[in-house]
Simulated scan of single mutants.
Amino acid sequence: MPNITTSDGISLYYEEAGQGDPLVFVHEFGGDHRSWEPQLRFFSRWYRCITFAARGYPPSDVPQDVSLYSQARAAADIGDVVDGVAGGRAHIVGLSMGGFAALHLGLMWPDKARSLVVAGSGYGAEKQHEDYFKGVSETVAATFLALGSKKFAPTYASGASRVQFQNKDSRGWLEFAERLGEHSEIGAANTMRGVQARRPSLYDLEAGLRTLAVPTLVVSGDEDDHCLQPGLFLKRVIPACGLLILPKCGHTINLEEPTAFNGFVADFLKSVEHGKWSKRDPRANPAQIMRTD
């Protein structure tokens, strides 16, 4: 199996398809490397697409020690994949947990990211919900360990921002839930405790985000409620950032609405490659409603 070894000695499994400029996909907590199949089939016509299983997700290594999981480490793992597989620089597309990690990669190692797609990212970022998010993250981790992934997966996959996917595409949702049921309980619990529950709020990163020069596209579903305000925040503070809201859409955006997702991301990548995705024009002053002089 193709794999790379991270700077701290963890083996990460990856797959690739197509030829061209490298395009790295980073999956969410509930997904894995297989979650990007609709994107690999589409983008591999023009790009060298790379998807990998995060640490804790077989066939990648599953460290038993929760201290080996963190937001910084998740970003570093993307960097190791970019260096080890993609030649040192790539477009990065991340969903949810993967979107957070992609954003942190852009902050920590901007030279590794040609562009960033930050999709479905915001859970735990809202300051008023920080304590709740940490508490429910611990509950989710404990439930994975107590029930096992296979038994808990249908419940987790039926969350408030995932029923949209189930209603639109019952077969696709069932495949998602079944694959979630194949995940390592220990890997899921350690990821939830070490990465999700401990990551800093996006609002605490404002100073760095205001200096982020990497072209960025933020994507949210309009029924993915806890990503909407963080998405607006990212749009306002990242200099070269666009915001896309998909209607009647939940959290699993790339699987729920693959045609729309692929089309908008493709247009974004083309804009970046042609030097057309620039910083916001300073004349577009958000404090101005109408010009009078």
Rank of each mutant, 00 (worst) to 15 (best):
R199K: 14
A76V: 04
D83Y: 04
R283L: 12
I78F: 04
R34S: 13
F100V: 00
Y14R: 13
G208P: 00
H251G: 05
G79C: 09
H104Y: 00
D83Q: 06
G88T: 01
W109L: 12
Q196T: 06
A76Q: 15
A207Y: 02
I50T: 02
V93N: 05
H274F: 08
S220Q: 10
A141P: 05
H183V: 06
G18Q: 10
F233L: 01
A54V: 06
S278Q: 10
W46Q: 14
V136H: 14
R162Q: 15
P63V: 12
E138L: 12
S7C: 11
I245F: 09
S271Y: 04
V272W: 07
L255A: 03
F133D: 01
G88M: 03
A284F: 15
A188H: 06
M97K: 01
A189L: 12
D267V: 09
W36F: 15
G221D: 09
Q229G: 02
L145R: 14
L246H: 03
S121T: 15
E178Y: 03
A74W: 08
S184D: 10
D111K: 05
S161L: 08
H33T: 07
R73A: 07
C249H: 01
V136G: 04
E138V: 10
P200E: 13
R283N: 07
G120F: 02
L269E: 03
L217S: 08
E15K: 11
L174V: 05
A146I: 11
D293N: 15
L116Q: 03
G250V: 03
K276E: 13
N285Y: 05
F25L: 15
V265K: 01
A102L: 02
F52R: 11
S137M: 10
D32W: 14
W36Q: 05
T252W: 06
W46I: 05
L217P: 00
Q19C: 07
T6A: 09
Q64G: 10
Q196G: 12
S170A: 15
L246Y: 01
P38E: 03
W173Y: 04
V195M: 14
R41W: 05
G20S: 08
S149P: 09
R193N: 07
Y132E: 05
A119S: 13
H33V: 11
D32Q: 08
A125I: 01
F29I: 10
N262K: 05
Q288V: 15
G263H: 00
V140N: 11
L244N: 13
K134I: 00
A266E: 12
G120H: 01
P258N: 08
G56P: 02
W173E: 09
L105W: 00
E28M: 14
F176D: 04
V81I: 15
T155V: 15
Y57P: 14
W36K: 13
S158G: 11
F29N: 05
R291I: 09
A240S: 15
M290Y: 14
K270C: 01
D61F: 06
A90M: 14
